[in-house]
């Protein structure tokens, strides 16, 4: 089943290890400006929200690409760019409603490729603010979290 990178902003510390690791494995540089994942930060409000490509089921980026440079990797489900074909028109960047497509300082289009099925950013996220999860589990996990105090209301002695 399809897996995606899920953000849990309430756990994010704003350390940007994900940005650093992403750019390192893709370019050999620790460079947030070349990272496919970015943490949006409001430092004095205590908000840190990791954002990356959501690998949409009906990807607008693929639809708007005039040269068909974007296609889904059948093994990982990631929307990948063929840089040999890409003409850097940035239609994908403009069309994406989430900012999932970004532009690197050298002009290349950046989009999360799920590191071939093992996203490296996730492996070093200590607080699990980003997780690589099967899509069908995302909602259920939230459900369980939302009602986590119910068992105690029903005087269940042992934790579930």
């Amino acid at each position: 089943m399809k897996k995606i990178i899920v953000s849990n902003p309430e756990k994010c510390t704003g350390c940007r290890v994900c940005e650093s690791v992403c750019s390192l494995v893709h370019t050999g540089r620790c460079n947030p400006a070349e990272s496919r994942i970015r943490v949006m930060r409001w430092e004095t409000k205590g908000l840190d929200i990791p954002v990356t490509c959501l690998q949409c089921e009906d990807p607008i980026c693929e639809m708007v690409c005039p040269v068909n440079a974007i296609s889904r990797n059948p093994d990982t489900g990631a929307m990948e760019t063929n840089h040999d074909i890409c003409i850097k028109c940035y239609m994908c960047v403009m069309a994406c409603p989430f900012g999932g497509s970004l532009i690197a300082p050298n002009g290349d289009v950046l989009r999360c490729d799920l590191c071939g099925g093992e996203p490296q950013c996730v492996t070093l996220c200590q607080t699990k603010a980003i997780e690589y999860k099967r899509v069908d589990k995302v909602g259920v996990t939230k459900m369980r979290k939302a009602i986590k105090h119910f068992p105690s209301l029903y005087r269940v002695e042992k934790s579930m």
């Binding site: 390192l24 620790c30 460079n31």
Partner: peptide
């Protein structure tokens, strides 16, 4: 926007994973 170039990215990441 230039970043920090790493001499041996794979080895560096492995050492990071070790201390992690």
């Amino acid at each position: 926007t230039k970043g920090v170039s790493i001499a041996d990215p794979e080895r560096f990441l492995n050492h990071i994973k070790e201390i992690y």
